[in-house]
Every structure is written in C-alpha cells, then in structure tokens.
Amino acid sequence: MNTGKTAIVVSKLNKRFGNIQALNDVSFEIERGELFGLIGPDGAGKTTLFRILTSLLLADSGSAVVDGLDVVNDYRELRKHIGYMPGRFSLYPDLTVEENLHFFATLFNTTIQENYRLVEPIYRQIEPFKNRRAGKLSGGMKQKLALSCALIHKPSVLFLDEPTTGVDPVSRKEFWEMLRLLKSEGITIVVSTPYMDEATRCDRIALVQHGKILSIETPEQIVRQFPKKLYRTEMRNQLQLLKELRENPAVESVFMFGEYLHVTFTDDTLAPYHSNPDRPSPVFTEIPPSIEDCFIHLMSKS
C-alpha cells in the first residue's frame, strides 16, 4: 500500500454521457489526511467524479490513483481500502440500525467490535435506536448511520457524496464536526456539497461547474482572490432596483442574495453610480465576499 504523501492523484479525467460532458479534463491531487471539498451546483459532475474514484465508473480518458491503487486495474484491492457514502440514502430501510452496521462490517470482512472505537463518536448517538428499522430514522440519523457503515472497516480514504443534503442545520453542523474528528484520525476525506457555507470547513475546496474545475484553493485563499470590492444593498422587494442596477453601465455584476443584492462596480468605487434622481439612492455597504460570491464570480467569468 502507498505510504506517500499524496492520497489521490487525478489526471486529465474525461467522461461523457451522450452529448453531456460530465467531466472535462479534470486534474488535481489530494494529500493524505486532507479534508477536501467539491463544491458546485447539481449536475456539475461531482457524483461522476466520485464514481470514477470509487471504481464504479470507467472514465473515457485520463487516470486516477487512489491510495496508490489505480482505479481501473487495481479496483479489487482498492475496494478494500475506501469508504463510500453515495448521495442517496443507501442503506437497507427494512433492516435495523444494528443489522445494517453488522452487515456492512461483515461485507468488509471485519466486525463491529474491531473498529468500534472509530465509529463510536457517531454511532453512540444512534445506538439508543439500534433496534429501529433504518427506514424509520430521521434524515440526520440516517446520515450518521450511513457514515458509520462507510467507516466500519477503517478506510484510508472516505468519499462522501453530498452527505448533508436534506439534513437539518443542527445535524449538518454535527456532521462536519465528526468529519473533523475523522480527519484527526488520519483518514483522507473527499466530500461534496451544494451548500457554500459548508465549504469553509474544508482544508481545500475545488469549485466545479459543467465538469470543469474552476479553482482549487483553501477557502481563505479563494475569498482573498475575489478581485473587487463587494457591496450589499437591501432590496426591499423592489425588483425595479435590480433592473435598474443591471442596466447601469457602472455596475459590473449584481446578484440576489435573499433580501439583499450583492453588487460590484466596474471601477471598484461607488462614485460613478447615479441613481434615478426622482428616488432616494440605495444604501450600499461594503462587505467581505463569501465563498458563494466567489463561486458566482468564477462561474460568470468562465
């Protein structure tokens, strides 16, 4: 087995489904023990990438090495060392919590006892319900069980495809705390999410769109690279304002964020902006950009 510093090496992966280019020349490296995030909208190609890395799909071209094992040639050995949690809840709803965990433990030729220490912080929370059918668990508990099942064989690399989608905010927070804990055990974790706010919890993130990686940086770096000053103004339900800003040549970009509009100006200053003299000028406040602002900026650029 590989003991080098890199856990995953992906180079020039391409995958096409019909006339959709799901992955377009994707290359990156992930270090051992890294918590790596894939951020992007639905259909960006995240799941396809996961499936190729877990040896479930064959790429059209390019190569991927996970834990020192080629995902095509060494797939049989590779499948012993990875943990995978697909996007959809994929445990057996008609089996109890304990039966599910037991089944996955034996599937990987291990026992619950052998690796209990690793899953304990997570499994302890659902253990009171161990005789309940998995289908009757709440969304957050389902995810915890799925994570326990993906971990029970002590994988060296863990793949989590949108583990927090459809999970309540409290459970989401807990879930990420658990990932931190696993990282401290030396497990390499690749996680995808459509939630931008979760991105800051990763060591590094890759922004993905249309099968292409727009950038790979630490969250801080991505925010730092935002090229403009960002202003915020309250929208107060005035779609008129949005339209006005969009038509104004001094405005470079404007996007809706809930009740606010996030605006950048071509000259990076408010000076050239003159609103309609008949109406009071909107109040602009400068704010630090979020990951989402950066992502939207990168997306509109590409």
Binding site: P86, S90, L91, Y92
Partner: peptide, 13 residues
C-alpha cells in the same frame, strides 16, 4: 434502484 448496489460494488465482496 435504491442505490445500495453502489455501496455493494464499492466494497470488496
């Protein structure tokens, strides 16, 4: 259909 085949295939069985 339920996606469990994905997990089974990604396991050493």
């Amino acid at each position: 259909e339920t996606g469990t085949m994905e997990v089974l295939l990604a396991s050493p069985i």
